[in-house]
Nucleic acid binder design. Structure first.
Length: 267
DNA sequence: AAGTTCGTCAACCGCCGATAC
DNA sequence: AGTATCGGCGGTTGACGAACT
């Protein structure tokens, strides 16, 4: 037998996320991290499938996300990378810290495509657009050779050269503060240890819940008034985690934040 | 003011490779 | 070794607001 199914898909909620759902998910992930997304909604008290939770987190709730339009530099980089990689949005996003593949994909489809066409550049091939021609006659119907495919980057080489992004989605695993873990056990039947990511090291347990809450990002990271109305204390305590947060966790951006050798978020 | 079209983007869908059993 | 699921990816959809008629 294989693994258990990701979700029953019965009675699960779909559609836009509410502020309350966001609170639950953020609070859970901040205190527990995640090991497998399948159990996250259950333990967080959400009627969503794990996939939906992962998407919401990686595309919208992650603390390292930049929001807002891409800068000119970022846009140029996206165009360059697209010329090399094609529609491999996740690869492109990996080169733009704080940006998601979904965001870049949307921006490409809504903004950059048009811009390139206006400039007379084919957004697919990155070659100059050919002026409209009359339909070819029968005898010279042989089409011209297709433009060369987007220049591929050697995977291995790419891995070597690729500057490590600020943070990788799969690396976001909040360390397990002991107090939060205790609080959580009162609400869920699975021990916190069982939901911790394998990438969570024991060294992270020294971090307090406040440390975890002090994840960097401006206030707009949530993009939702609900959480802002609730406030950070409300956000955490709303999920049953008894933590007093004096500072605004989104008021600081730790540009030099990174991970230790065990993939634990360090500031 | 009402109706229609357009633009944007969050979220879903389905596929695929990796991997647990 | 075979099967089923997970996690991730790219494509697509649909809701919503803005702009236009």
């Amino acid at each position: 037998m294989g693994r258990q199914p990701c979700c029953d898909k019965v009675g699960l909620k779909k559609g836009p996320w509410t502020a309350e759902e966001d609170q639950k998910l953020v609070a859970f992930l901040l205190t527990h991290g995640h090991c497998c997304w399948r159990v996250v909604p259950k333990l967080a008290g959400l009627l969503r499938c794990g996939k939906s939770c992962r998407l919401r987190w990686t595309n919208y709730l992650r603390p390292d996300l930049k929001r807002g339009l891409l800068s000119d530099d970022e846009e140029r980089l996206v165009i360059d990378l697209h010329a090399q990689l094609g529609n491999r949005w996740s690869k492109i996003a990996a080169r733009l810290p704080g940006r998601t593949d979904n965001e870049i994909k949307n921006h490409w489809n809504t903004h950059i495509k048009k811009k390139l066409r206006k400039m007379g550049i084919d957004p697919v091939t990155h070659q100059p657009l050919e002026p409209p021609r009359p339909p070819p006659r029968e005898q010279d119907a042989t089409p011209p050779p297709p433009p060369p495919p987007p220049q591929e980057i050697e995977e291995s080489e790419e891995e070597e050269q690729e500057p490590s992004p600020l943070i990788e989605p799969h690396e976001i695993t909040a360390p397990p503060p002991a107090a939060a873990a205790e609080a959580a056990t009162s609400n869920c039947s699975v021990s916190p240890a069982s939901v911790l990511s394998p990438s969570c090291s024991s060294s992270a347990s020294a971090a307090s819940a406040v440390d975890v809450a002090e994840w960097p990002e401006p206030m707009y990271m949530f993009g939702m008034d609900g959480i802002m109305d609730v406030g950070w204390n409300g956000l955490i305590s709303g999920a049953g985690v008894d933590v007093d947060v004096d500072v605004d966790p989104f008021d600081h951006y730790y540009h030099d934040a990174s991970f230790d050798d065990q993939d634990v978020w360090i500031i």
